[in-house]
Design a protein around this nucleic acid. Structure first.
Lengths: 343, 343
DNA sequence: ATGAAAGCGCTAACAC
DNA sequence: GTGTTAGCGCTTTCAT
C-alpha cells in the first residue's frame, strides 16, 4: 500500500493538491458535489485528512497547549489540588478541540516542547528556575496561575486575604499557634524556619498565605515567631507526617495548627489521634484547598475552599481568547469539625 | 529582530545550513573547534536549535507519546488509581526525554493527535468505541493496559485470580454478599444488574474481577445472583454513595460487600457508619486498588494492592523499546481493619 | 569536513 | 472553481 499524502491522493483522484486541501479545509472553495465526492473517495482510500504535523509547520499553529507544572508530572498528577486544576484546563481544551501536553516543572528548558505548542499555561512556579527564564523569553503566549512572571496575565485567588480571614475566625486569644507551610524555602527538607530567607511572595503562594496568617496573628495579639513555623518541600505523606510529629512533640504543644494544604491537615490529624489527642478538643486543625478528601475525612476539615477547576478553566479560556487581563478568583471559608469558628 | 531559522542563522554565520544542523545533531561531522564556535554564536543570537516541529516532519519522529485514557481527561486526573498510572508513565518518559500528550477516551477519533505522536499508551478501554477502532488502524505502535486490542502488546494484572483469592480469604459460609462493580454495563446509571448483558471480559477489567469473585463464591457455596450485583458508571462520590445507600437498605442486609475500587469502599463505609453500623462488626467491606487514601482511611481497607505506577512505567518502557511481549504484573492482598481474613 | 539541493506534507497566494 | 507554485524549517544524501 502506497503512502497516503495529499499529493498521492490528489494524483489518485486526478485533481490538484489544492483541491483536496480545500475539500478538507475550505468547504466553500469548491462545489458541494465535488467536495463530497472527494471526501468519500478519500475515506475509501483510508486517507483521514491532511497531516497535522505538516499543516502546523505551514500554519504555525499546532492545536496543542503546553501545561507547565510546578513540579514533575509524576508528583503533580497525584496531588489532588493540581489534578483538579488540570481537570478544569482539560475540560476547556477538550471543548475547544485543543490538545494537552504536560510539561514537567523540573525540566531544564522548553526546547523539546516549544515548537509543538501554541502557548503555555503555568500552574505554580516551576522548581527549575531555568523554566521561568525560558517562559519569559518565549514568543508564545503564556498565562500563569498562582504566581506571576513579568507582565504575563495571571489567575490567582487572594491568598493573603483568605488566610487572614481564616485566622480571624478561628483563633482564640490564648492559643499556642503552629503553622505548617509548603515550599516556603528551597530545600528538600522538612524543617522549622527561623531566620532563613524565604521565597519571595510574588513567586510563592505559600509565602502569601503566611503573610495573611501573620497579619491576623498580630492583629489578634497572638504570639508568632518563626520557631513556630515549619515548612515541607512537597505535599506528600512522608514530609507531612514528619512535620506533624515535630509539631506535636513541641513544648508547649500548640492548640491550633494552620496547615497550608488539606493533605497536611489530614496527616496531622491522623498523627494527633495516634498519640491519643482529640481533634478539635485538644488541638484544632485548619487546612487549605477544600479538597474532596478533606470533606470525606473524619473529622471534616475547616479549610479555604478554592475552586481549582474553575481556576484551570479560566486560565485555559484566557489563553485561547488571548486575553491580557489578569483575574482574581473568589474563595470561600469552610468550617468543619476539625476547628470550629471562634464566633 | 529577524526570524531565527537554520537558514537565517547559517547566512549570518556564513556557513551552510547543513553545517549548523550538524553542529546541533551530529557532533562528529565537523571539527570540535568549528562546532563550539557555531554553538556559541547561536547562543549569542538567541537561536536555541533547530525547530522541533520541522525536524519531526523530516524525521518522522516527534518525541511525543500519546496516552489514551478510558474516560475524559478531566475525570481521569482526579482518579487516584489512574493518576498513579500516569505518574509511572511520566517518570519513564521524563527519564527518556519524551513528552506526554494526554488524549481523552471520550473523543471521536485520533485525527488531531495522530500526526504528533510516535506511539500510544492506552490505559483502559476508551468509552468511545471509535477510538478502539482508530487505534487498531493506526500505523503507530500501541501498548494497551488493563485491556486488549487485537494483538497489541499489553500490560495487565491477573484480575480474576486477585478477586478469587480475595474472596477465598475473606468470605464466611453464612455471609450475605453484595458486589459493587464499576462500568459493568454501558450506562450512565447506578443500578442493579439482573440479566442485562455485560461488557465482555476482554475489554472490561471489571468483568474479569466479577468472574474471580463468582468463581470463589461458587466454590465456597455462597449464594450469589445478579440481584446482589450493582454497577456504577464512574468512580466518583455521587455514584458510589447512591450505590452504597441502595446496598445498605437491601433486605437481608449484606454482611460483606466487595467493592471494585477503594474509593467505592471508602464511601460505602462512610454511609454504613452514618446509619449506625460498625465496620467490620456489622458489615465487612473490601476494596480494590490499594490506594493511599484507602490506607489513610479509618478503618484501613482490606484490598488488592496493584502497583499502578509500575504498570505505567512498564507500559512506557515497552513502547519505547518496541517490545512485543505482553506482561502480567503481580498484585498483593492487603488485609486491613475493614475486613479481617477468615483464616 | 563542508556545501548544494531535494523533499518531508502541507497551505496560501496567485494564476487561469 | 480549480490548478500551479513557493516555501514553512529542517535533515539527509551526494558532491566536492
Amino acid at each position: 500500500m502506497k503512502k497516503l499524502t495529499l499529493k498521492s491522493v490528489a494524483e489518485e483522484l486526478g485533481v490538484s493538491t489544492a483541491t483536496i486541501s480545500n475539500a478538507f479545509n475550505k468547504p466553500n472553495q469548491l462545489s458541494k458535489a465535488k467536495r463530497l465526492e472527494i471526501l468519500e473517495r478519500c475515506e475509501e482510500l483510508g486517507y483521514t485528512g491532511p497531516n497535522k504535523a505538516a499543516r502546523s509547520l505551514r500554519r504555525g499553529k499546532t492545536g496543542i497547549v503546553g501545561l507547565v507544572l510546578a513540579n514533575s508530572i509524576s508528583y503533580t498528577v497525584n496531588d489532588a489540588v493540581a489534578s483538579t486544576f488540570i481537570s478544569g484546563v482539560s475540560q476547556c481544551l477538550e471543548a475547544n478541540g485543543q490538545q494537552l501536553l504536560l510539561v514537567s516543572g523540573a525540566g531544564d528548558d522548553l526546547n523539546n516542547v516549544n515548537d509543538f505548542v501554541d502557548g503555555y499555561l503555568c500552574y505554580g512556579s516551576p522548581t527549575n528556575p531555568n523554566l521561568i527564564d525560558a517562559l519569559s523569553k518565549t514568543t508564545k503566549p503564556v498565562i500563569t496561575v498562582d504566581f506571576n512572571i513579568d507582565d504575563y496575565p495571571s489567575v490567582n485567588i487572594d491568598n493573603i486575604e483568605a488566610c487572614y480571614q481564616l485566622v480571624k475566625q478561628t483563633i482564640r486569644p490564648d492559643d499556642v499557634v503552629a503553622v505548617i507551610g509548603l515550599r516556603l524555602i528551597e530545600t528538600q527538607l522538612t524543617c522549622r524556619i527561623y531566620d532563613v530567607p524565604m521565597i519571595d511572595p510574588v513567586t510563592s503562594i505559600s509565602r502569601r498565605r503566611l503573610l495573611g496568617y501573620e497579619k491576623a496573628f498580630s492583629e489578634c495579639g497572638v504570639d508568632f515567631n518563626y520557631g513556630q513555623l515549619w515548612s515541607i518541600p512537597e505535599n506528600i505523606e512522608s514530609f507531612a507526617v514528619r512535620a506533624a510529629k515535630e509539631v506535636l512533640s513541641n513544648q508547649p504543644r500548640p492548640t491550633i495548627v494552620y496547615c497550608m494544604s488539606d493533605l497536611i491537615a489530614v496527616y496531622f490529624i491522623r498523627e494527633a489521634i495516634e498519640i491519643g489527642l482529640s481533634v478539635p478538643d485538644d488541638i484544632r486543625v485548619v487546612g487549605f484547598d477544600g479538597t474532596n478528601e478533606g470533606q470525606r475525612f473524619h473529622p471534616n476539615l475547616t479549610t479555604v475552599v478554592q475552586n481549582s477547576d474553575s481556576k484551570g478553566e479560566r486560565a485555559a479560556i484566557m489563553l485561547l481568547k488571548q486575553s491580557k487581563e489578569s483575574q482574581l478568583l473568589p474563595f470561600a471559608l469552610h468550617f468543619g469539625d476539625s476547628c470550629p469558628t471562634n464566633g
